[in-house]
């Protein structure tokens, strides 16, 4: 089943900058796709279109549902985005409240919320951290809690913006193992080629808001000429 379908997507920021230029691709259920590009190529902008935070011209369809003002709540339930900076994703006084945020706003009852929080934290290996306060945690722990907070949405699709940024090798390894175990459809925007090689069979290369290449990760990451053209080498 086609999980994500994007056709002729273009987007300009209020100040006029053209951030995305006629983007089009599809992702099937369960697929794991990487997105690479230089800074400013449009990776984050693209990801923000997946759950309707940004809405450009063109088609964005999530599990058959077109993304527009009316379908926002539905779409946001299906797509979970893990942003780059965990401090900006964990904004509640305690871990419990951060992870409970999504189910709370989905209208779940208190016992249901408790169950979901418990499951989400266990899924990232952070069970028992419910009463901790975010600013006491290390970067690696915060990243995992942020993922748990997104898992609590019970999404079908997960999108990550630079998941391994600021992580030491050990934490990065733990994170990778975690992500490998997820059954969701995954979109991963990253500068880290090692992460992409391990997690994504397919990679899309962006340059100045346009798709430069879309193919097997193995081939793309070994194509020096292509990477140079994309300002990545």
């Amino acid at each position: 089943m086609v999980h994500i379908r994007i056709e002729h997507l273009s987007f300009s920021y209020p100040d006029g900058t053209l951030a995305l230029n006629d983007i089009g691709f599809s992702v099937t259920e369960g697929e794991s796709v990487g997105i690479i590009g230089a800074n400013g190529a449009g990776k984050t902008t693209l990801i923000l279109h997946l759950n309707g935070i940004l809405r450009g011209n063109g088609l964005v369809e999530i599990a058959g549902v077109p993304v527009n003002e009316r379908t926002l709540l539905v779409v946001r339930r299906k797509v979970g985005i893990v942003f780059q900076n965990p401090d900006e994703q964990l904004f509640s006084p305690t871990v419990y409240e951060d992870v409970a945020f999504a189910p709370l706003y989905m209208g779940k009852t208190a016992p249901e919320i408790g169950r979901i929080v418990s499951e989400s934290l266990t899924a990232v290996g952070m069970a028992g951290y419910e009463e901790k306060m975010p600013y006491h945690l290390s970067v690696g722990e915060k990243k995992k809690i942020a993922i748990a907070a997104v898992l609590a949405q019970q999404p079908e699709i997960l999108a990550f913006d630079e998941p391994s940024a600021n992580l030491d090798p050990k934490s990065r390894r733990i994170l990778l193992n975690l992500l490998l175990g997820f059954p969701h459809t995954r979109i991963i925007a990253s500068h880290d080629f090692n992460v992409l090689k391990e997690l994504c069979k397919r990679t899309i290369v962006l340059k100045k808001g346009m798709i430069l290449a879309d193919g097997l990760t193995e081939e793309i990451l070994n194509d020096a000429a292509l990477l140079k053209e994309a300002d990545l080498l």
């Binding site: 935070i53 942003f83 949405q153």
Partner: peptide, 9 residues
């Protein structure tokens, strides 16, 4: 943005 992504309305 993070709040909206998690369903804040």
């Amino acid at each position: 943005l993070a709040m909206c992504s998690r369903g804040f309305s």
